[in-house]
């Protein structure tokens, strides 16, 4: 085992995949020589060459559109969108093409790719380096959406995403890219299965659901709640869509109380879907209205970003509120 952060772990996953399968290619803005603005692809061009790692023109639509063509040919492209905030020039290709190719061609074609992109705030990035656009893509049938919370999962989920037959959006929480190191088997092949959530803190009284960087806020709030005698169960979704509904429902059946946490704005965020699913599948077990703690329905702010994010300080009162309802 080697201690590494999430940046290194994702880099290691790409190396493992590219060594094993010559169909895997990496393309994007600055992913080659400089190794990506976050250095996630550092050194790949040295090991695999400019025939498999491409510094593309500055064009997200071109990156995803050509990646679709590569996928139709039979390669497994791993396009990087430098920040998720810049994914929208490629939105038509992702929504109209990547997501629909298998369906619309009656299964003749697939558009298998893993689109990697850093998401989330807390890094002084303002509107355009901080957003969490997962809901747009979950709302589009045909896409899978993954967001790891730690280096070990990041590597295993990325390898699983690459082997999955469907296109995957792989959202990397940039706030915790280098936050923590963990044991990751370097150069080794392993997967963390898609659509399997993880109970990271078992508990009996309140279910707290989170993913990515906000998982640590959920854990911190749950630890503080424990000091006040409230026993929380924290679930890390790991794959946002298709979500591991069984783990959620089993937990809510036990606790009867639930708090969903995400960075994206509240209205029509994925928390809304989770609350609906919980109402549909565990209504009889609920002891309190399911509650969301999310980013506000404003553009992502710069100076006040820590007041925008659903940090532990905002999660704790929500836990207390549902606990005493």
């Amino acid at each position: 085992m080697t201690q590494m952060n999430m940046v290194k772990a994702i880099n290691d996953a790409l190396r493992v995949a590219m060594r094993q399968d010559s169909r895997v290619v990496v393309l994007g803005e600055d992913v080659g020589k400089v190794g990506g603005v976050f250095r996630v692809t550092e050194g790949l061009i040295n090991e695999f060459g400019a025939e498999r790692v491409f510094d593309t023109p500055l064009s997200e639509g071109g990156i995803i559109g050509t990646a679709v063509g590569m996928a139709l040919y039979g390669l497994i492209p791993v396009p990087e969108i430098q920040f998720a905030d810049f994914i929208f020039p490629a939105f038509d290709q992702i929504v109209s093409e990547v997501a629909k190719f298998r369906y619309r061609s009656g299964g003749e074609y697939t558009s298998k790719m893993v689109i990697r992109t850093p998401v989330g705030g807390g890094i002084r990035g303002g509107h355009y380096h901080s957003q969490s656009p997962e809901a747009y893509f979950i709302h589009t049938p045909g896409l899978k959406v993954v967001c790891p919370s730690n280096p070990y999962d990041a590597k295993g989920l990325l390898l699983a995403s690459l082997r999955d037959p469907d296109p995957v959006l792989f959202f990397e929480p940039k706030r915790i890219y280098r936050a923590a190191r963990a044991d990751v088997p370097e150069g080794e092949d392993y997967t963390v299965p898609l659509s399997v959530a993880k109970v990271v803190r078992p508990g009996n009284q309140v279910t707290v659901i989170a993913w990515g960087a906000m998982l640590y806020e959920a854990i911190e709030a749950s630890n503080k709640a424990a000091e006040a005698g409230i026993d929380c169960e924290v679930i890390d979704l790991r794959t946002i869509w298709p979500v591991d509904i069984d783990t959620i429902v089993n937990s809510v059946k036990k606790t009867g109380r639930v708090v969903v946490v995400h960075e994206a704005p509240k209205s029509c965020g994925f928390g809304a879907e989770l609350v609906s699913l919980i109402n549909e599948k565990a209504f009889d077990y609920l002891e309190a209205p399911p509650t969301r703690v999310t980013g506000w329905d404003t553009p992502f702010p710069y100076t006040l970003e820590m007041d925008y994010l659903p940090l532990a300080g905002r999660i704790l009162p929500a836990i207390q509120s549902v606990a005493k309802y």
């Binding site: 679709v68 040919y73 074609y109």
Partner: peptide, 21 residues
């Protein structure tokens, strides 16, 4: 290929396909 209605989407795809080949 496969027809979709949005205009021009096939252009980058054809280029990516030829690039891959």
């Amino acid at each position: 290929g496969s027809v979709s209605s949005p205009i021009g989407t096939q252009i980058t795809q054809a280029v990516g396909f030829a690039w891959a080949a």
